[in-house]
Design a protein around this nucleic acid. Structure first.
Lengths: 206, 206
DNA sequence: GTCTATAGCGCGATAGAC
DNA sequence: GTCTATCGCGCTATAGAC
C-alpha cells in the first residue's frame, strides 16, 4: 500500500493561490512551530515571507485566522486518514508495520506542523476539545481501537481501548521527538523502525 | 524506598519568602502552563495572584526572570533525582516498579510544571540545548542508560542507550498526557500502572 | 512590602497608493 | 496583488507614594 499521508508543505506549494499567500503560509508554519504562535510577530512573518505586513492582512483577516488556515486543512486530513485507512489489513503484524512506516514518515516530514499542533494542544482549550471529540467521540479513535481488538483475537482482550491507543502511539511519538527535536538519529534507522514494530506488536498481544 | 520527588507547588509554599512573591510564583506557574508564556500578560498574573503589577516587578526583574525562577529550581531537582537515585536496586523489575510509581506520581502532581517545560522545550532553543546536554553529556542520562544495561544482564544487550531511554520514558509520558490532558482516567488506575511496569520490563528484556 | 500612576513602545491591524 | 504609512491599543516595565 502506498503512503497515504504526504508533506503538508508540498501541498501548500501545489495549491493554485497567489504566491504571496503561499509564502505567508509557509513562513507562518515555520515561525509558529519554531518560536510559538504568540512569540511570533506579524513583522517577522512578513520578513520571513519577503512580503509586507499589508499582504498578510490581504489574505488573512487576523493572525489567528492565519493559524486556523494553517492547522485546519491538515487536521482534517489527519482525522480522515490517520486511523481509518487500516481496514484492508488481515494480518496484525502487517498492519502494525504499515502504521509505523507510514505514520512515522508522516510525522518526520511534517514535524513543524506537529510541533505547532502540540503547542496548541497544551495551551488552547478549543484545540484540546476538538481533539478530545476526535478521540472519544461516536466514531472516534477509541471506538476504532475497540474495533481493532475485536477484529484481531491475538490482541490481549483485557486491554482497554485507551491502553491500545497508548501502545500504538507512544513509541512513535517518542521516536519522532528523539529524532527531530534532539537530533539523536541512530546510525541504522531501519533498526529503530524494526524495534518500534516489534515492541508495538508485543505490547498489543502479550 | 520513599518518594524522592515531591510537589513543586508545596515546595514554593514552604519557602520563607514574602507572601506576595509566593502568590506571583504560583500564579505564574498556573497561567504560563495553561495559556503559554507569551500568551500570559503581567496584568493577568497580578490579578490571579491578587497583587499589583508593581509587586511582580519588585521580586522579578522581568517576565522572563519570573519564568526562569519558576523553572530552574525544579529543573535542578529533576536533574539530580530523576535517574540518579536508582543505584540501590539489584532487581530490574523492582527498579522498574519504583521508577514507574515514583516518576508517574511526580509527573501527575506536577503536570502544570511539566506542561510549561514541554512548551519551552518546543519553542526555546536555550532550554532545548540545556536538556540536550543533560541527556547526551558526560554523566548524562544516556550514559546512565548504558550503565543500567551493564548492571542488568537481563536487558537486551543489543539495545542502544537511546532505545533504552525511549522504552523507559515513552509509556509514562503518554500515560500522564492521557490522564491530565485528556482526562481519560481508567476506573482502576492501578491496573494501568501494572501494565506500564509489565510493558517496560518486557520491552527492556525481550 | 505593596500599591497607584504612568511611561514608552511594540504589536496587530487598516487605509489607500500603485 | 502588493506595498507604504500610520493608527491606537495593550503590553512590559518603572518611579515614587504609602
Amino acid at each position: 500500500m502506498a503512503k497515504v499521508l504526504a508533506s503538508y508543505k508540498e501541498e501548500i506549494n501545489q495549491q493554485k493561490i497567489p504566491s504571496g499567500q503561499k509564502k505567508v503560509l509557509l513562513a507562518g508554519l515555520k515561525l509558529f512551530s519554531e518560536k510559538g504562535f504568540h512569540a511570533t510577530t506579524t513583522a517577522e512573518i512578513a520578513h520571513e515571507a519577503s512580503v509586507s505586513e499589508g499582504t498578510i492582512y490581504k489574505y488573512f483577516k487576523s493572525k489567528d485566522d492565519l493559524l486556523t488556515k494553517l492547522l485546519n486543512p491538515l487536521l482534517k486530513e489527519v482525522q480522515e486518514n490517520f486511523f481509518v485507512q487500516l481496514n484492508d489489513y488481515q494480518d496484525l503484524s502487517k498492519l502494525v508495520a504499515f502504521v509505523v512506516e507510514d505514520r512515522v514518515h508522516f510525522l518526520l516530514i511534517n514535524f513543524d506542523f506537529f510541533s505547532l499542533f502540540f503547542q496548541e494542544l497544551l495551551t488552547n482549550q478549543n484545540m484540546l476539545n476538538l481533539i478530545k471529540k476526535y478521540v472519544a467521540g461516536e466514531k472516534g479513535v477509541l471506538a476504532y481501537c475497540q474495533n481493532l481488538q475485536h477484529r484481531f483475537t491475538e490482541i490481549n482482550q483485557k486491554l482497554t481501548p485507551v491502553q491500545i491507543l497508548r501502545i500504538l502511539i507512544s513509541p512513535m511519538l517518542a521516536y519522532v521527538i528523539q529524532v527531530k527535536l534532539f537530533n539523536l538519529k541512530a546510525a541504522d534507522d531501519s533498526a529503530d523502525m524494526t524495534l518500534l514494530k516489534r515492541q508495538i506488536s508485543a505490547n498489543l498481544t502479550d
